Simulated scan of single mutants.
Amino acid sequence: MQFQQLAYFVAVAETRHFTQAAERMRVAQPSLSKQVRALEAELGAPLFSRARGNVTLTPAGEALLPLARRMLADAETARSEVGELAGLRRGRVRLGATPSLCAGLLADVLARFHRTYPGIELLVEEGGSRDLVRTLARGQLDLALIIMPLHSDDPALVTEEVLSENLVVASPSAGHTRRPYARIEELRRRPMVMFRRGYDLREATLAACRQAGFEPRFAVEGGEMDAVLRFVEAGLGVALVPSMVLDGRPGLTGTPLAPPGLRRTVAIAHRKDVEPTRAAQAFRATLLLFLTDAARDGDLPEGLDLITRTGTGTDTSTGT
């Protein structure tokens, strides 16, 4: 079994077309087909059904696809890590983060890291926690800043809790009388702007409302963070968001929920079965130092608190 064969297999699986896969891989179609057949012979099972020109995965192909993606991603990580050690390149960090963190303090962390390690390539993927966990498990990220806790069906990860943040009710500032807090029950009577599926904020909002005994009423749903905040500014409804995303948005007001309020925990995660690269370890150290310095100097965004670290991480192989 060769990595090239696995790459060809993944290309066909994703395009469901041999010619398009060959174009993606920049190889002649007969050569690609030959390598896929060789892989099938090596494994002793057909990977694709080719009936009437319709290419679909067989059960064997379905089983191989996630493994092949992970093997290819790990091979690329190995090349990057060895290249770094050999002095050929300095490495890379593939980081996933939630939209609230991307819009908040992450830019300052990346700037500090880039000043310290200017030769390391930074690749950032923004998304909801569930999406980032899946991407991390496929080997397409080195680290991810996600929201805890993990779900029972999430893959095995090592997580380290780093921040606790307040969720507030975001509403338009115009005509708003500032209040010390709001009760979750008040959202029963107000239209809400809701995030798309896959966002942890969507799940947190639904869970809080249902615990209070009602289903929220959506004025609009399906947006990303920037879109949701803009919709709230336009008066379409209110939204439950992290307090730090309201920095620099004078058109929005954040009202905390009545004590004990609603908080969530941010953790840095990596796969349990793969040790982070040296570049990724350097980023983790930079992030933790930045957060420690910001907490000491009082520079953390409003509603964020540093979690005192008592260990190196938590094995979440059981998803709990």
Rank of each mutant, 00 (worst) to 15 (best):
F3L: 15
Q4M: 13
A11L: 10
A11M: 01
E14W: 01
E14D: 11
E14I: 09
V27F: 07
V27P: 00
K34H: 15
L39N: 05
E42M: 03
A45C: 14
R52E: 12
R52C: 11
N54F: 11
T56P: 11
P59E: 08
A63P: 10
A78Y: 01
R79L: 05
S80V: 13
G87K: 06
R89Q: 14
V93L: 05
P99D: 03
L105V: 13
D108A: 11
R112E: 10
H114C: 14
T135Q: 08
L141Q: 07
P149Q: 01
P149Y: 00
L150P: 13
L150N: 13
D154L: 06
E161L: 12
P172G: 00
S173D: 09
E186R: 15
R189P: 06
M194G: 02
G198F: 02
E203I: 11
A207R: 02
F214T: 09
F214L: 01
R217K: 05
V220Q: 01
G222C: 03
E224A: 04
M225R: 00
V228I: 08
L229I: 01
R230T: 07
G237L: 02
V241Y: 06
S243V: 04
G254V: 03
P259E: 08
I268R: 06
A269C: 12
H270F: 02
D273M: 09
D273C: 03
D273H: 10
T277L: 01
A282S: 01
L287G: 00
L288I: 01
D297H: 14
T310M: 08
G313N: 14
